[in-house]
Write a protein that binds this DNA or RNA. Structure first.
Lengths: 360, 360
DNA sequence: TTGTAGGCGTTATCAC
DNA sequence: GTGATAACGCCTACAA
């Protein structure tokens, strides 16, 4: 149906080999031949068949992205970051999101065999060390995102959750809010676990006398709302609430508003992620900024490195630092709530990104 | 490097043909043979090479998505909707976003040759009828999203921008706001053009005596902010402002707040798209809801239909209706601004979805 | 410089 | 039921 290299060869009165050479610029063809071939190819609207080419070339110029069924800005920004960098490198992106559970992920992973040169895997429940050992094709360059799997044949890239959490606790304590309650995320989420651990460590160091208050959430807005109500009912109300992600902070905010409390006047509030919504709620939310698109870009960079030197099992662990962005929800600014626009450029405190390679 | 069908055949002491039959359940093999082959395949962790298989099968079980370099919720939701439905059909998704201009899109389109069974194209400047005629592989099932290209070999799926705009104008006029100013989107965007045309038509019909006020924007928040300031300076201030998308409405809101105006007390405000931020802004934004994920799903459904009957040039035009969602920014509710949560479920007015097929 | 031919990994078509 | 073998479309030695 579609035109093949043979059609072009026949029409240009040369062999298929010459067509290939002319079109791929491999040299070894007369300028005249090349011109004629290109002319015919254009006229016939010939486009090489990707599958056929990659069968012999052993390269697909495509990378895969395996993602759990998540939605919202994190997904969007991550894909965007990966795709942007992939495109800059002339690579395409085969995404497989919206899968639930290990079985589903395994099927998706198998289907990528022979269609990708490398793969980025965002960790999710069920996708652990055993899963990867069993399902990750040997020798396929791969980068694990936000994962606690280590020592495998893949590179690992994580957010610096601990440092980010610590920076926010320091900020809150510095503002005089030592009695901080933490709203945690789902137990089966790696970032959520790290953020809670970071909170515990930071409190032990920065506010050792304050009670350790942690209420369970699951990263959803409604769980944040419930947590907010629970905290309002606590005997001494906490001075500040630090939610493990922004959506839960937004839920808390809702609960506080309903109760007639002023934020930050009566209670301070902080989140984690810096999703776009954080800027638009009233008051604008102070939060730990995760540069998600950059996370995607770095993952792609890491993967490209792995793809450049095949066979070398370059297991390594990398960490992307995160800032805190101070808006109004913790009481740092007292210049009125109407200037949300100017709060877009605010003081940020960077945690230093670290790279720890462990060749094996 | 990776294990192939030959390795399995040798190990199981059968021919490659039998391995293929056993693993694909094509029948024609003893139960014993099948069991042995499966056992060996599992032990060797054999996974068929996708490219090789699709070379002979003529099927990739993959669909492509060609998107402009857009970010934010529209992108995210669309991909999600497509992917969800694709996955339900056992199809994979090759995305190519973040490209600017026709040349870039052409390269992306070529690269999909032989890697996809069908393609969804979100229209963007430069991707017009001529572009598609020149770059769209003949016979490749394709669905055009938000496009004014018609009569080609592709199915077209659009948002019902005109009906949506009209419904919102009716809502505003019904509230007593006849003097409505419209903030338009970029001229090279199809949706933006349709929304402006819809506004003109609606005003001519529903508020013929009101002055027609249209100020230019480009879908960005900052352009909305500028438009908002411009409208505040107008001699008789408009009673309502209807922005062609939500981000511009958010920009307007900012301008109004800075000027000390109350929304909706002093001026009503409406948007288009119903991105998540619309709910979280103060006051919550009344807007025209576009069910983006459903748009993606419908596109995938349409594409699947086309893929089922190859060769049949089923050019058709489909329209996805949209609701208006009434929150607080137009003054419909007067039950206090604190109950944003309940405003999530609100009165919606549906425009009827229409499907107009034109077989040729 | 050009053409011929072999092979990439798989499925499909034959014989047996 | 099973096994050779010919495609699928392309690239790349090797030969001319």
């Amino acid at each position: 149906m579609a035109t093949t290299i043979k059609d072009v060869a026949r029409e240009a009165k040369v062999s298929v080999a010459s067509v290939s050479r002319a079109l791929n610029g491999s040299g070894g063809v007369t300028a005249a031949t090349e011109r004629r071939v290109r002319e015919v190819a254009a006229r016939l609207r010939y486009v090489p068949h990707g599958a056929a080419r990659s069968l012999i070339t052993r390269r697909t110029h495509t990378i895969g992205a395996l993602l759990p069924d998540l939605h919202g800005e994190f997904f969007s920004e991550l894909i965007r970051g990966i795709d942007l960098e992939a495109r800059a490198r002339g690579l395409h992106l085969l995404v497989s999101s919206s899968h639930n559970g290990a079985d589903d992920a395994a099927v998706a992973l198998r289907a990528m065999q022979g269609r990708v040169d490398g793969i980025v895997i965002l960790s999710s429940p069920g996708v652990d060390a055993d899963f990867l050992r069993a399902n990750l094709p040997e020798g396929l360059p791969s980068v694990l995102l936000n994962s606690d799997v280590q020592g495998g044949s893949a590179a690992v890239l994580n957010i610096d959750n601990v440092a980010g959490t610590c920076a926010m606790v320091r900020h809150l304590v510095g503002l005089g809010h030592a009695d901080i309650a933490f709203v945690s995320g789902p137990k089966d989420n790696f970032d959520a676990r790290q953020r809670e651990a970071g909170f515990r460590a930071a409190m032990a160091k920065l506010a050792p006398k304050a009670p350790l208050r942690i209420v369970a959430g699951n990263f959803s807005e409604s769980s944040g709302y419930l947590a907010g109500r629970e905290l309002l009912a606590a005997k001494p109300r906490p001075q500040a609430v630090f939610a493990a992600n922004d959506m839960m902070a937004v839920g808390c905010l809702q609960a506080f508003k309903e109760a007639g409390l002023a934020v930050p006047g009566d209670i301070a509030l902080a989140g984690f992620d810096d999703i776009p919504i954080a800027r638009y709620v009233t008051p604008p939310l102070s939060t730990v900024r995760v540069r998600i698109a950059e996370l995607g870009k770095n993952a792609m960079d890491l993967l490209a490195d792995l793809m450049d030197r095949p066979g070398v099992s370059a297991a390594s662990v990398h960490t992307l630092g995160c800032d805190i962005v101070v808006r109004e929800s913790c009481g740092a600014h007292r210049n009125g709530g109407a200037t949300a626009r100017t709060s877009k450029t605010t003081k940020t405190t960077k945690t230093r990104p670290t790279t720890h390679s462990s060749p094996r």
